[in-house]
Design a binder for these strands. Structure first.
Lengths: 302, 302
DNA sequence: TCATCGATATACATAATTGTATGAACGTCG
DNA sequence: CGACGTTCATACAATTATGTATATCGATGA
């Protein structure tokens, strides 16, 4: 309790947690097994609790260690961010920029936008964190975030893109076999792909279209990509962005006039990053690319 | 570029930034000035840029160092959170819990709630981060947050408290001198305390009461506490929570029937913390306390 | 059943980090 | 204007952390 433990201990901790053994962690860090072992010992002494159960085939984390894992991960990503921003020259468009977005946006929408961006700036590295759960919002774990809700913090440079239209979709094949519902009421005769988890969007849907909520889902997932994959595989009818039903995709937008809850979209970055050319350029490219995407959504719809 | 720099360097970096000199940083960390100097040298080598300009009366941070400051601060707070979580026993209500809230809530509303909580659990330490700007949302920099907007992330345990009523207020003394306006239109004859910065609330007010936006403010501040202090000092008419106009405060709620934009309030914490008794207990106390507060707001109003 | 491979733990030598002591530069104050 | 109290920089000694080598335990497979 006398002196604060070395911050290197946390690095050893997270590596052991990831690798599952002192030896493997030592290899990854370029250190040796006794050293890592001593680090863990010291950390256990500092928190006054056992973090791992040693066994002859590795280290098993205790509950306490698992509680501490997210903190250690934050440390690791922040160290990365530190080095990344520190070592990129501030006057040129080069270095790494890290983008955070939802899985669907990150995987279905952003890649072509990023491709164009890197065509224009070959030295620009892009790191994409596509995740629904962590949503590592702006705590400098990401430089720029694409968000489906208005960011609340001040000190952010925020640009509203518009509304991404969502709607019921099904694969052409499914509709050929089961018919195309013409009214919301007919949905109850179909296989529905449902959501597992409560999100703000689902709560809003529930409020505006209570009927949808009572539909029995034959396939339910909390993962939006799995939901989309279900639609594409012809499992049944689900909800996705209308822009994904582009020509050649075999997805059909149904009940277009019966159901409409747009999904607000924002791009945000720290105000302090607006002087960094690489962040600025990426921010502008995302705004422009997403505006185009929304435009194409509306066209698909008409 | 061969091996990752020691994480201790970041600790030295943030301490030098805070203290302004190698010597002072060394004193704080219990190390010596040459050691800290070597750490800074090593970090500069790692990022390939100068971080400080050395002078005989301290170290002056370069722009790059200032860019890196927020990352280093995140590291420091996360390390604190790590040790705090790690060293508090999981089965008892003791240890430290860190609450994040806006300045007004943190200073005007929470203290009595926290007092009651600590009366019930004497071993519980509470750390309150009252800040509008940083809004260190949930990235484990705070255990529990009181927020004025619905948190968007999943994996959060969220409880909606209700709406805190806001309204125009002035000090009794001011009204005795200048009269009490009976309609919104009469506001233009009064001294108005205005806001400096755009927030979600101000944008909404602008939309619902465009007339308010055109009032010329004779005292303008971006700090909500300063705004409140202005009202209390009798500078003029401003907006604050109606609950602050309790008996004995000499604040008078005016135009109560003309103006009404409630401020939604939520309490949120990480789902993973709900097994921790001290977080659980604090969460419940905040919910209960804030519900009471809102109730008392409504009574003041009637 | 025994050999092998991987794991952790310990003892000792080594290398790296840190501390001590000192010098030089700058600002402040009497 | 000079003494004093800061600061950072450098050279050398001491300490600490790390690496090497080895022992031990346990799981796996021929």
């Amino acid at each position: 309790m006398n002196v604060e433990p070395s911050w290197d201990f946390y690095r050893s901790f997270i590596t052991v947690l990831k690798q599952g053994s002192l030896s493997a962690a030592a290899r990854e860090l370029g250190l040796t097994q006794p050293t890592i072992g001593r680090h863990i010992d010291a950390l256990e002494g500092a928190v006054g609790a056992q973090l791992f159960i040693r066994s002859s085939n590795g280290l098993l984390p205790t509950d306490i260690a698992l509680d501490l894992q997210p903190y250690a991960e934050t440390l690791a990503t922040t160290v990365n961010a530190f080095l990344r921003t520190g070592s990129s020259r501030r006057d040129k468009v080069e270095g790494t920029v890290r983008i955070s977005a939802s899985e669907v946006i990150g995987i279905e929408v952003l890649p072509p936008i990023i491709a164009d961006l890197q065509e224009a700036y070959p030295l620009l590295q892009v790191e994409l964190s596509a995740s629904d759960t962590l949503e590592d919002l702006m705590n400098r774990e990401a430089d720029i975030a694409v968000r489906m809700a208005e960011p609340q913090q001040d000190a952010l440079l925020i640009r509203r893109i518009g509304d991404i239209p969502l709607g019921f979709h099904a694969h052409r094949r499914y509709l050929e076999r089961h018919g195309t519902p013409q009214t919301m009421a007919e949905l109850s005769d179909h296989r529905i792909i449902g959501f597992d988890r409560q999100t703000a969007y689902i709560r809003m849907m529930r409020r505006l279209y209570p009927a949808v909520d009572e539909l029995a889902a034959s396939f339910r997932t909390s993962n939006h990509l799995a939901h989309l994959a279900g639609i594409r595989a012809g499992i049944g009818i689900g909800i996705c962005q209308t822009g994904l039903a582009r020509p050649g995709s075999d997805l059909v937008h149904i009940l277009a006039d019966e159901f409409d809850i747009p999904l607000g979209t924002w791009v945000a970055m720290h105000e302090s990053l607006k002087t960094s050319p690489r962040c600025r350029v990426t921010f502008d490219a995302l705004v422009k690319g997403l505006l185009n995407y929304i435009k194409s959504c509306k066209e698909t719809r008409a």
